[in-house]
Design a protein around this nucleic acid. Structure first.
Lengths: 217, 217
DNA sequence: TTCATTATTTAGACAAATCTAAAAATTTTA
DNA sequence: TAAAATTTTTAGATTTGTCTAAATAATGAA
């Protein structure tokens, strides 16, 4: 079993792995609000436990064992988010911090029962997929716009944020359901996305891109 | 805010206060599975934070502030137990360890919403009362037999454990609903209770006494 | 009421996770 | 490609909660 802190490191490394591979010490330090020196210490420890592969000065990647642990934490986090929104009427932007604590509760029975109670949801309130108990993600029909790369194109099939201010914003940009889009470029420094809708060039922030669901083709 | 460990100490001191006043170092050590020396250290710390009153060699009592904190943890513990049994179909004897973890989640909103979701229950699955958010317990019509003292008498009005083996055991002892009982003595060393039912003297263990609900008079 | 027993505290040490400051390696830039 | 800048690691210290062993206080028995 891993400590609360170890679990957090594994989860962050898992998320950062989607962006860069291997994951750098400083990137982890920033996300976990700690210092690079502390990260090095913890990485060594996780490496001894064979949860990460670590090469000095080169960064870390998760081992199979580490990845499974991380995915399980992500699973718990997202199931709790569904619970908070669907059952306790939290708003989607109120759930993160609480789920951050709940994800560390140790009980397989609890999570299996919760999953059942929620009718085995496949996505969380932010539109992120929920892995099953074996760590498998179902193939979703859609993907977040923020996950696309330059050159990709697809059709807007949904949103994961339903506030009227957000929807009005999309309308103003012409980003409505059914529209075809093409990614021109994903800006390195802030993750904002330059895209094409009906011959029109638009730039949207990473935050906005996160909440637009796309069917690729 | 208190640490996870501090919260546990406060909770244990609160529970032990019902038995002895002030609470002794060794009693805490035993309940928390730690050594007396560690307890002394922690008590000093809690005393500096004005959560307990501490006199060397005399034991501890909770301050008003400490008591409120402890009651809030008890509240959270019991609400989670209700959730686990009512919503996730846990059995009453499966909930304790998980609730022990859940009680430390920090979010007032979460607990208020959970309370509402469960329709403001007044007792947990073991028949223990659930304090409201101000720390007040409602006066219950019944009390656990294990809370009575010698000389007390009353009527059996319920049980908080429904396994058939337990109910058969009660039947054999003649401890059925509606029967009048009188406490002869509560044994110091194991908390077992000597009582009178229909002129018949019986001895029941503390565990059994905990699950028999009595209406006093 | 003195001695023995038990309970509690003190002193010093340890493991986990963190930090600062300095050293070492890597990357960037000129 | 050598110097400068950045990133990462090491060394040593700190905090929290724990421990063992020894010292001290309180309690109980003769």
């Amino acid at each position: 079993m891993q400590s609360y802190t170890e679990e957090n490191y594994l989860k962050i490394i898992y998320h950062l792995s989607e962006i860069s591979h291997p994951v750098q010490t400083n990137a982890i330090a920033e996300r976990i609000h700690t210092k690079a020196a502390s990260v090095t210490d913890m990485i060594k420890k996780l490496s001894e436990k064979e949860l990460v592969n670590y090469v000095k000065y080169q960064g870390v990647t998760l081992t199979e064992k580490g990845k499974l642990t991380a995915i399980n934490i992500v699973r718990k986090h997202r199931l709790w988010e569904v619970f908070l929104v669907d059952k306790l009427n939290f708003k989607w932007d109120e759930v993160h911090d609480v789920a951050e604590e709940l994800e560390h509760i140790q009980s397989n029975l609890l999570i299996e029962r919760l999953d059942e109670f929620l009718h085995f949801p496949s996505v969380d309130p932010h539109g992120d997929p929920i892995p099953d108990k074996h760590g498998n993600f179902v193939e979703l029909a859609f993907v977040k716009l923020s996950k696309l790369n330059s050159g990709d194109n697809g059709t807007i099939t949904g949103v994961s944020e339903h506030s009227s201010s957000f929807l009005k914003h999309l309308e103003k940009l012409g980003l409505t359901l059914g529209k075809r889009i093409e990614i021109i470029e994903v800006l390195e420094f802030d993750g904002s996305v330059e895209l094409l809708v009906e011959q029109q060039k638009t730039n949207i922030s990473r935050e906005v891109a996160k909440h637009i669901l796309i069917t690729k083709n």
